[in-house]
Computed example of a mutant assay.
Amino acid sequence: MHAAAVSSMQYTHLIPGSTRLHYGRVRPSLQIFSVKLAEIRGGLEWPLPVYGTVAARDRVDHNRNLLFARNRSECQILNEEASFLTLTGPSRAIVNEQSVVFEIQLKVRGRTKSQDKALMNGVCSYYSRREAPICFRNCICTVELSMERLKKSVQATILGVRVKEEGSWPKAFGGRVACSVIGPDASPQEIELLDSRYTTMPITCQGYLVLSRIVVSVDYRGNLNFILEAYSDSGNKVAQNNESFKLKFSNISKQNVNSPEALS
Rank of each mutant, 00 (worst) to 15 (best):
V163C: 13
I227H: 15
V177C: 05
A178C: 13
T19H: 13
K237S: 11
P28R: 10
R129M: 15
I191S: 08
K237I: 11
M147L: 15
C179M: 07
S232V: 09
L30Y: 10
R59G: 08
A93C: 13
L30F: 11
F84R: 06
H13S: 15
R213L: 05
N96Q: 14
R72P: 07
I94W: 01
Q155W: 04
L228F: 12
N241Q: 12
S114H: 14
R27I: 11
D195G: 06
G42V: 03
V26R: 10
M120R: 02
A239R: 04
E229V: 02
V163S: 10
L78Q: 06
D61P: 13
S8N: 13
K237R: 15
K237G: 10
N256D: 14
N223P: 09
E39V: 00
W46V: 08
A55P: 09
G89K: 05
P184S: 07
M9E: 14
I94K: 00
Q206W: 02
Y208P: 00
R64V: 01
G42M: 02
Q31C: 11
S83M: 02
I94D: 04
K117R: 15
V215F: 03
N241A: 14
L67S: 00
S253F: 00
K237W: 02
T200H: 12
V210A: 12
I158H: 02
Q76L: 08
V154Q: 04
G160K: 02
G24M: 11
F68K: 01
V54K: 03
I158M: 08
G52D: 05
K171L: 15
Y231P: 08
L145R: 04
N242L: 14
N236K: 13
N225F: 00
I191K: 03
Q105F: 03
R130C: 13
I214Q: 13
F249I: 12
V210K: 14
F226S: 09
